[in-house]
């Protein structure tokens, strides 16, 4: 059975269907049809579409990267402006502090001067009053001393020594 079968195969068809030339026109015809269909589908629809999608994507990515770069630049600028404003405010504040300090200092100085002058004036007044009081007290003391000396002299030795010499003696004693 097997040998008969093998013999039949050899007799009936070539060993390889690939070399059966009777099927070649059929295969070639359908292959050409297939390739033409694929070529037109690809070149008319698929490839332009995929190409445009890829181009659009790379364009989008490029744009996004550029936008990100732009925003980053803006952020850096904003930070710089912020820092500058901060520094400006600080120096302004320092200036205001300094000027206020100077103003207060001058005011304080003026007030101190005024107070000093008043104190000096009052001290001088007081001194004057003290001097006047002292002078009057001295004069009173001299008068009292002379009167007492006259009274003592009159009591001890009446009429012997005059009032004038007693006054001179008292004055000389008080000075010494």
């Amino acid at each position: 059975m097997a040998t008969e079968n093998t013999g039949e195969v050899v007799a009936d068809a070539p060993g390889m269907p690939q070399l059966d030339f009777s099927t070649f026109p059929n295969q070639i015809f359908w292959l050409v049809v297939t390739l033409i269909v694929i070529y037109f589908v690809l070149s008319r629809i698929a490839l332009p579409r995929i190409g445009s999608v890829l181009a659009e994507r790379s364009g989008t990515i490029t744009n996004d990267i550029a936008a990100a770069e732009d925003l980053k630049q803006k952020a850096v600028e904003a930070e710089e402006a912020y820092n500058k404003a901060l520094a400006d405010a600080r120096s302004e504040a320092a200036k205001i502090v300094a000027s206020t300090k100077a103003e207060i200092q001058t005011e304080v100085d003026a007030a101190i001067q005024e107070a000093d002058a008043e104190i000096a004036a009052r001290a001088a007044e007081g001194e004057k009053a003290i001097a006047a009081i002292r002078d009057s007290a001295k004069a009173d003391a001299a008068t009292v001393a002379k009167d007492i000396a006259k009274d003592i002299v009159a009591a001890v030795a009446p009429g012997k020594i005059d009032a004038k010499s007693i006054t001179a003696a008292v004055t000389a004693k008080m000075k010494g």
Partner: peptide, 25 residues
């Protein structure tokens, strides 16, 4: 099998075309 006979070649080539269209279109 004539030149324009619809054979298994036709069937499998058509399936190839359909697969390509499914993937790329």
């Amino acid at each position: 099998v004539g030149m324009f006979t619809i054979t298994n070649v036709t069937l499998w080539m058509a399936l190839t075309v359909l697969c390509i269209i499914a993937l790329l279109v």
